[in-house]
Computed example of a mutant assay.
Amino acid sequence: MRRALILLFFVVGSLNSQDFYYNFSEGKSYSIAIRSDYRRYKNKKYAGLTSKEYKVIFHANNLENSYKIDGRIYKMEKTLRNQVLSGYLVDEDCSVSYFMNRSGEVKSVKETEYPFLRGAPNFPEKTLSIGDSYFGYGEAVLDIERKYVLPIATQTVYLGKKMLFGSERDYFEIRYSYTRNHGVKEITKTLAMHNVKLYYDNEAKLPSYIEDHFKEEIHHSGDVYRMEGFTLYFYNITDAMNKEEVVRDLSDDLDFGEDDGVVVEKGEEGVVLRLEDLKFKPNTTDLLDIEYDKLDKIYNSLAKIKDKTFLVEGHTAFAGTERERYELSLERAKTIAYYLISKGLDSKRVLYRGRGADEPIAPNDTEENMRKNRRVEITILDG
């Protein structure tokens, strides 16, 4: 009887024990939508509400016991029309590149602010049972006047299963704070506590959602900064894009002629639809009526593409001032983005921005070349 009870205890314990780790696949594309809202105080005076939104799209190459992560991060601003989301304005973007092992340790980060959290969440190289806790170390990006990367200490506890958006996930709670030995002479004191909720997808072997609530007090160069708020991370996994196949299928579906001014081609960030010499009403960002048939055709093709993000970019020829060129390119990109959304494209998957005359595809030396540079490009991003 005693032996049977011991065996039963061992079996039940084994059923409640699991291994956790990061598992990236080379045939997949990964994206993380990040939203951060927090109140800022400087020397006990309210300094405003800060809201930040980011979209990270990346791929992973499998190495021995680790992954090489390469991708791009877009810093965005939510756009509302009549209190309804109408896409995201891209403020800036840059490439990201780093190494991560299966436990979550991050190394060799390119000189960018991402990942904001490095080495957290992390997983131990052992089986976990409900109630198990463990400690770890990592780094976090702190934005005070300038950006610093500070060391952090973490404590994580595994709490079993919990529902998230209608699906069962493994649930962890993490606490972390900055360590004292950060080596930044401008920062003389840090008082911080982050309470993190992590939902882990045991099928994908990756986080699916992270919620970080925090309070920080930072003494920096004689000033005292206090921040209170939260950061949310939404993970998504899709099949990696076959650019050649998408170019072929999209070209066949659109079936534009040479005189229509629409080119479909591979780009660095995805597949690009280049709309050359779109016709607008004089001195406005309003399209001529004849252009809407072209956009309707493009919308019908884009609507068939699931789980990808669309980046709409406006370009101008080299005419007018730099500010005028930027504003014109931005407004024309916005016109196209808004129209595609009004037709039914998911506004959460539409980004837009103006490029001015910074990226010409031809010299601005003839009217024909300037016509080519006056264009809107829609990039189907791989994530």
Rank of each mutant, 00 (worst) to 15 (best):
S208Q: 05
G229Q: 13
N202G: 09
Y225G: 02
Y225T: 03
V224W: 07
Y225N: 02
F230C: 07
S208A: 08
F214I: 02
I210D: 01
E228N: 11
Y209K: 05
I210G: 01
L206K: 11
Y209G: 05
I210F: 05
Y225M: 04
G229K: 09
G229C: 12
K215D: 10
R226D: 03
M227Y: 14
E217K: 13
R226C: 05
H213E: 14
G229W: 02
E211I: 01
G222L: 02
M227T: 14
M227V: 05
E203Q: 09
E217P: 00
E211V: 00
T231Q: 12
E216G: 00
H220L: 09
K205W: 06
L206M: 14
E216R: 03
H219E: 04
Y233F: 15
M227P: 00
D212R: 07
N202P: 05
Y209H: 12
N202C: 05
N202A: 12
G229R: 03
K205L: 10
E228H: 07
H213K: 09
Y209P: 10
N202W: 04
F214P: 08
S221P: 01
F214L: 02
F230D: 15
F214K: 03
G229F: 03
H213V: 04
Y225P: 03
K215M: 08
D212G: 11
I218D: 02
E217A: 08
A204K: 12
F230V: 15
K215I: 07
E203M: 09
D212H: 04
K205F: 08
E217H: 01
D212Y: 01
E216P: 00
V224S: 12
G222V: 07
E216F: 00
D212V: 12
K215A: 03
L232Q: 05
K205G: 09
G222W: 02
E203K: 10
I218M: 03
D223F: 08
M227R: 14
Y209R: 09
A204S: 08
T231K: 15
T231H: 02
I210Q: 09
F214C: 08
S221D: 12
H213G: 11
S208E: 08
M227C: 14
S208W: 06
Y233D: 15
E228T: 09
E228C: 05
K215F: 03
E203C: 07
Y233E: 15
H220F: 09
Y209T: 07
E228R: 10
G222I: 04
T231P: 00
G222Y: 01
P207L: 13
H220A: 04
D223C: 04
D223P: 03
P207H: 12
E216H: 00
